[in-house]
Design a protein around this nucleic acid. Structure first.
Lengths: 140, 140
DNA sequence: CTACATCCTCTAGCGACTAGAGGTGCAAGA
DNA sequence: TCTTGCACCTCTAGTCGCTAGAGGATGTAG
């Protein structure tokens, strides 16, 4: 079995080298074996685990949620209710965030459209920011 | 003129008390005058400024962008091109973020729908996270 | 006058990394 | 074999935008 260096593991999983070490330091990834010269030597399973973490992070899951998901993955005979609950909670968060961003987008569009590219004293951008009452969408 | 305490300023602007002090410490808000007993005494203009900051923060502007917007506001004879550029950049970011979140939402929905509420080894949530190839939307 | 809310400064902590210093290991070319 | 140069090591400190807490002073209502 060939040794996988941290650089190789990083490349294959898409997680950056210092981040791999960070995940090890917080116990999200088991400490791998070391070479003669004290360099980390990863297994293919570590790369899958890193890819799992990366994917979950991209989906916006927090580290603690990922920790739970990983313990579930480690013991596949458990009920998946926890995993389901975590994903559902995240879905609700995402839906909320989308609604909020849509409102924000509308507001920014108003600001940008209103800007006549003149001087600041006629600028809608500044004006809208200064007076919340002008917001078209009361999203906050 | 009655003195506005930090608590009153916080209440009126919607910015929390420690955050007001924090904004002062980073120079976003000028240090107000002090009472006999060394307590901050704000002016109505400070409250407008705090409200401006709060609104911009809610819209997702970074502190440094807000600093620029505030210097523009302080000198309304300048061209509003900078303000316009900041808002436009932010609009593009927001549009990008919405697109990404919509894809994410679809992916989370697939995960949650696929979960048969059985054991982890049949759970789509874990499965999709483990294998990025299963993503319906290649958003990342 | 006393109780109590509010204020003050200061330091440290949060999440999830990222950057840098200062040093060691290792593989490939001359 | 030597040397070059990249990749690796540990450790500390910094990032952003606050937030929490300690330990003490001030202001106000009853």
């Amino acid at each position: 079995m060939k040794k996988i260096t941290i650089g190789e593991a990083a490349r294959q999983s898409g997680v950056k080298v210092p981040t791999v070490r960070y995940y090890e330091s917080i116990g999200l990834l088991a400490a791998p074996s070391r070479s003669e010269g004290n360099q980390r030597s990863f297994e293919p399973a570590d790369i899958s685990r890193l890819a799992f973490i990366r994917h979950a992070r991209e989906l916006g899951f927090e580290i603690e949620a990922i920790r739970t998901l990983l313990t579930l993955q480690d013991d596949p005979h458990q009920s998946c209710a926890s995993a389901d609950a975590i994903a559902k909670a995240r879905l609700i968060e995402v839906e909320q965030r989308i609604r909020s961003l849509m409102a924000l987008k509308a507001e920014l569009e108003t600001m940008v459209e209103g800007c006549g590219h003149g001087r600041v004293d006629q600028c809608r951008v500044i004006e809208v920011l200064a007076d919340h009452g002008q917001c078209t969408h009361p999203h906050h």
